[in-house]
Amino acid sequence: MVTIATSHQRRDNRNFYLWISPWIFGFLVFQVGPMLFSLYLSFIHWSPFGSSQWVGLGQYIRMLHDPLFWKSLKVTGYFTILNVPLSIIAGLAVALLLQREVRGFRFFRTIYFLPRALTGVGVAYLWVYIFSPNFGLLDHLLSYVGVHGPAWLYSRTWVIPAFVLMDIWSAGGGMVIWLGALQDVPKTLYEAASLDGATPWAQFWRITLPMISPVLLFNLVMGVIHSFEVFSNVYVMTAGGPGTSSLFYVLYLFREAFPGFHFGYASALAWTLFLIIMAFTLLIFRTSRAWVYYETEVEGRR
């Protein structure tokens, strides 16, 4: 009996490692290996001609005195603070409006999802023209209400809000994850609450929001990561301008790496980005104990 169990276990073991072997190879060669190597690069002064030298924390210290590093951090932080909450609210709002299978909801879901298909450099150029002064759609619409539109991508003040606006335009597509979460809330909770006379507003705050809080946590973490990694839109739309007003973090990093070939410094920037993202994620998870509700908690108490 024991031998059968162990031979079964052994076969399972062999099969498991056989099937996942492609990932193990990819994980080591394209992920862990490069990660460790870039950590090493961040401690040296790399030269394309092969005379690299160990500088310890030198690159990181240089970063502290680099005004462009701080500027890119500020730009990215400002974008994140505006973008993450607004995108979450927009996605959830669309999902709440479309969760009931009212007439035409399929049509509306398709429309709100459409911007998720409209991505890439092509769409970035469409937005350049929408934001263009005078002839752009946005300024044209604003002129109807008597507002002389700002120059958007040419304005130091408005360039970041312009990128936020672009993201919110596609935020309705985030509804797909919210819809899944809303469907998973047990209907009996709402029935019990309306028997007790709870208003829809109270039901949202007391039932819906706590029940979908794990998904809120997920979207918060993903939103922060996504905002910190903005690159291609900025690269083609403003190239960090005007001046350095839209110098996003990854854009700065990329410039250091590719036209600049400062591999050591760029690696230090990359690891700092990784640490920032990890710190944010940890912070969100730490505080989440106070506001995220898990069904298993109740089961555990029983």
């Binding site: 394209f30 992920q31 490069p34 990660m35 760029a266 990359a270 690891w271 990784f274």
Partner: peptide
């Protein structure tokens, strides 16, 4: 869990060594 954790690693961390490879 390690597989899921790789989703959090920014691609820029592996970009330069992958380029060298």
């Amino acid at each position: 869990i390690m597989l899921l954790a790789t989703m959090m690693v920014p691609p820029q961390v592996t970009m330069i060594p992958t380029f060298m490879l």
